[in-house]
């Protein structure tokens, strides 16, 4: 899976350095953060559940069982059952794959597009840079989740469109970060040297500027996954994302709200799943930032 390749990728970038390499320093600093290590464990577990969740799920997440409607948590149904008698534990477990896939795809997509425009805008400057930044201004003009809602309004509801909406939502953020980093790196001596040796622009950007921006992108990427999952769940909660009976956490919460007085457990567990997942990615992002010693504000 692509998401596990990211740390490996950074490793190979910095491994070339000598004894106290940036990579080793990073590992040492990261390990010192207890909360970060816990978050890493949580994220690893979530990725595992994403892979094997449906295989170990005790019940079919979409199969109704009208003999077991709205049961409270028990040994048979760990998280109880919902209004169709479906096992909530199985639904939350299967939802892991949906939420993580949506979060990872949208953020990676947004980061890739954002990195391309950020690198090129920062490197070439001039009118092209102005154009890219104005386009960002337009996207930034929609506060928060509204840009995603606008895109859903255009594309129509459904999970694939949620991925696109959240990706577009992430693009301007990555453009701005990567462009800023590129501007800072552009005047460094090693870039000048690369240019002096007659390297082509494409090679300078890809081989020399791109690796320099990776650490910042990595931190933001991790943090954005949390908020992407949150926004995707919000869209599903509003009825614009996953449609029933898909076991998506936001959609499950939305249907559970009708039974708040009689069966609060229906809305409890999907919400808890969203919280733990976002917490895991956000804490991991914090720890990465501190370990990379980057001064970033969110």
């Amino acid at each position: 899976m692509s998401q596990t390749q990211v740390p490996v990728g950074t490793a190979s970038v910095s491994k070339k350095a000598s004894v106290d390499s940036p990579w080793r320093r990073f590992i040492r600093r990261f390990r010192r953060q207890r909360l970060g290590m816990v978050a890493l464990g949580v994220v690893a577990l979530l990725l595992l559940l994403m892979a094997i969740g449906p295989a170990i799920s005790p019940f079919d997440p979409t199969e109704p069982d009208y003999d077991a409607v709205m049961e409270v948590p028990s040994a048979k149904h760990w998280f109880g059952t919902d209004d169709f008698g479906r096992d909530i534990f199985s639904r939350v477990l299967n939802g892991t794959r949906i939420s993580l896939a949506v979060g990872l795809c949208s953020v990676f997509g947004g980061a890739l597009i954002g990195m391309f425009f950020g690198l090129t805008a920062g490197y070439y400057g001039g009118k092209y840079d102005g154009l890219v930044m104005r386009a960002c201004d337009v996207l930034f003009a929609f506060p928060g989740i509204l840009l995603a809602i606008a895109i859903i309004a255009i594309l129509g509801p459904g999970l694939p469109n949620v991925v696109i909406a959240v990706a577009v939502f992430s693009v301007p953020i990555f453009i701005r970060i990567v462009r800023g980093e590129t501007l800072a790196l552009k005047n460094k001596t090693y870039i000048e040297a690369a240019r002096a040796t007659g390297l082509r622009d494409r090679e300078i950007i890809w081989r020399h500027l791109f690796p320099g921006t990776i650490s910042v992108v990595l931190v933001y990427l991790t943090m954005r996954i949390g908020s992407a999952i949150l926004i995707a769940a919000s869209l599903s909660f509003l009825g614009m994302g996953a449609q029933p009976p898909t076991p998506e956490w936001g959609a499950m919460l939305s249907s559970g709200r009708d039974y708040l007085t009689t069966a609060p457990h229906v809305a409890m567990f999907p919400g808890l799943a969203i919280l733990v997942t976002c917490l895991g990615f956000n804490l991991l992002g914090d720890a990465l930032r501190d370990a990379l010693d980057r001064k970033l504000t969110d």
Binding site: G226, S234, G250, L253, A267, I274, L275, C278, L279
Partner: peptide
């Protein structure tokens, strides 16, 4: 961090 990670609808 919990506040930032908390889904507002929940």
């Amino acid at each position: 961090v919990t506040g930032i990670s908390m889904p507002s609808f929940w």
